[in-house]
């Protein structure tokens, strides 16, 4: 009996020392590896690549790669409506578009870059993503027709519905509602 207690104590000790130590699995990710996959863009603009794109350039790209699903003017096709819908968010049937609903312009760049077009994601160059973003924002009358977007100008765009968003999450709550 005494022996088994001693063995147990040693076992616990081994576990404790492992728990505080690094396992050391995996290896260091290289800057080049990280750069290839680090494609997200935050509201403060961090993550935006070099490059620029205009509304005019975006119109041509949009017509070729986006209009079939989202409509010629972002008015919706089989897939989401992208433009208009202002003032409808709290209606019984809201039109949640980039202009009427999305809180950050950076999210538009991030999403187009990673996921659009549906049949060829991550195929657009940074210039093309800036241009398409500019065109979708122009369709929503958020930027003028002569706008050119880049890593400096995009994060400064104030989206009309930004103030509508609140976060339900707090570390102490995570709590069920309503």
């Amino acid at each position: 009996m005494r022996g088994s207690i001693a063995v147990g104590a040693v076992f616990v000790g081994v576990l404790a020392s492992h728990a505080s130590a690094r396992y050391g699995f995996g290896r260091q990710a290289t800057p080049r590896e990280i750069a290839g996959w680090d494609i997200d863009v935050s509201p403060d603009g961090s993550g935006l690549p070099a490059g620029r794109g205009s509304v005019r350039e975006g119109a041509a790209i949009y017509a070729e790669k986006c209009a079939a699903c989202h409509g010629g003017k972002g008015d919706g096709g089989p897939m989401d409506q992208l433009a208009g819908g202002f003032g409808t968010i709290f209606d019984a049937k809201p039109h949640k578009t980039v202009g009427s609903f999305w809180p950050y312009a950076t999210t538009l760049f991030d999403f187009v870059r990673r996921a659009m077009p549906l049949d060829a994601p991550q195929s657009l160059t940074p210039d093309q993503v800036y241009a398409v973003s500019a065109y979708v924002l122009f369709l929503n009358r958020i930027v003028p027709e002569d706008a050119v977007l880049d890593a400096t100008t995009l994060p400064k765009i104030e989206m009309p519905n930004r103030a509508g968003f609140t976060s339900e999450y707090g570390p102490a709550t995570g709590a069920p509602k309503p």
């Binding site: 968010i89 709290f90 609903f101 519905n161 509508g164 968003f165 609140t166 976060s167 339900e168 999450y169 995570g174 709590a175 069920p176 509602k177």
Partner: peptide, 12 residues
């Protein structure tokens, strides 16, 4: 007329 983000926990 607010929009709630980060509604993580699924309620009972």
């Amino acid at each position: 007329h607010t929009i709630r983000q980060f509604n993580f926990a699924m309620e009972a």
